[in-house]
Every structure is written in C-alpha cells, then in structure tokens.
Lab assay of single mutants.
Amino acid sequence: TSQSKEFDPLGPLPPGWEKRTDSNGRVYFVNHNTRITQWEDPRSQGQLNE
C-alpha cells in the first residue's frame, strides 16, 4: 500500500495551507484563509531572521 502523503521533515503545514503541484510538476502552496498562492513553503518562512 502506498501512502498519499509523503513524509515531510518540516512537519505538517500550518492550518489552512495546502501543498499542490502544478502541471509542470512544480510544488506550490495555497493559503485557503487568504486565498493566496506562493512558491515558498510557509513552514520555512520566518526562520530566516532567527
């Protein structure tokens, strides 16, 4: 049996976020709370300043 979700070392996405793949196979992220899409992983944002 194959799992639909692959193991992700960053852990789960924040509430309201979804990881998607476009027609070219590039991963992007959707924030359903604000209806915004972005290329950057929301889990890695904010760690750059620490």
Rank of each mutant, 00 (worst) to 15 (best):
T1R: 04
T1W: 03
T1S: 08
T1D: 02
T1L: 01
S2F: 14
S2T: 07
S2C: 01
S2M: 11
S2I: 13
Q3S: 11
Q3Y: 09
Q3I: 15
Q3H: 03
Q3L: 10
Q3F: 15
Q3K: 12
S4T: 14
S4D: 15
S4W: 00
S4K: 14
S4A: 09
S4N: 14
K5F: 04
K5W: 00
K5C: 03
E6F: 05
E6T: 06
E6R: 05
E6N: 09
E6G: 07
E6S: 14
E6D: 03
F7I: 09
F7R: 11
F7S: 13
F7D: 11
F7A: 11
F7V: 08
F7Q: 11
F7E: 08
D8N: 09
D8I: 09
D8P: 11
D8S: 12
D8Y: 07
D8E: 08
D8L: 08
P9D: 02
P9G: 10
P9W: 03
P9V: 05
L10Q: 10
L10H: 15
L10E: 12
L10P: 10
L10I: 03
G11C: 09
G11T: 07
G11I: 03
P12M: 06
P12W: 00
P12D: 12
P12I: 04
P12Q: 14
L13E: 03
L13C: 00
L13K: 02
L13Y: 05
P14I: 01
P14E: 06
P14R: 02
P15H: 07
P15T: 13
P15L: 13
G16P: 12
G16I: 02
G16V: 06
G16R: 06
G16S: 11
G16T: 08
G16D: 11
W17K: 01
W17L: 04
W17V: 08
E18N: 03
E18I: 11
E18S: 10
E18M: 03
E18L: 10
E18H: 04
E18P: 00
E18K: 07
K19C: 12
K19V: 00
K19N: 15
K19Q: 08
K19G: 04
K19A: 05
K19I: 08
K19D: 14
K19E: 11
K19Y: 03
R20F: 09
R20A: 10
R20Q: 13
R20N: 12
R20W: 05
R20T: 08
R20H: 08
R20K: 06
R20P: 00
T21P: 06
T21K: 12
T21Q: 09
T21D: 15
T21M: 06
D22F: 03
D22A: 14
D22M: 07
D22V: 08
D22H: 09
D22W: 04
S23Y: 00
S23T: 08
S23M: 06
N24S: 14
N24H: 11
N24K: 15
N24C: 13
G25I: 00
G25N: 15
G25C: 09
G25W: 01
G25Y: 05
R26H: 10
R26V: 09
R26C: 06
R26W: 07
R26K: 15
R26M: 12
V27L: 11
V27Y: 04
V27Q: 13
V27T: 12
V27E: 11
V27M: 14
V27D: 09
V27P: 09
V27A: 13
Y28G: 06
Y28H: 04
Y28C: 08
F29N: 01
F29E: 01
F29W: 12
F29Y: 12
F29H: 04
F29D: 03
V30S: 06
V30F: 11
V30K: 02
V30A: 10
N31F: 01
N31A: 00
N31H: 01
N31S: 04
H32N: 00
H32G: 11
N33Y: 00
N33V: 02
N33T: 13
T34L: 15
T34E: 09
T34G: 11
T34V: 08
R35Y: 10
R35K: 03
R35E: 08
I36Q: 07
I36C: 10
I36K: 10
T37P: 04
T37G: 03
T37Y: 00
Q38M: 07
Q38P: 00
Q38Y: 05
W39A: 09
W39H: 10
W39T: 11
W39P: 08
E40I: 12
E40T: 10
E40V: 10
E40N: 04
E40W: 06
E40H: 10
E40G: 10
D41P: 04
D41L: 02
D41E: 01
P42R: 00
P42W: 00
R43W: 01
R43G: 02
R43H: 01
R43I: 01
S44Y: 06
S44P: 14
S44V: 11
S44T: 13
Q45D: 05
Q45R: 14
Q45E: 15
Q45I: 04
G46A: 13
G46Q: 06
G46I: 15
Q47P: 11
Q47K: 09
Q47I: 09
Q47M: 09
Q47L: 14
L48G: 13
L48I: 15
L48C: 09
N49I: 03
N49V: 09
N49G: 11
N49D: 11
E50S: 00
E50D: 02
E50R: 00
E50G: 05
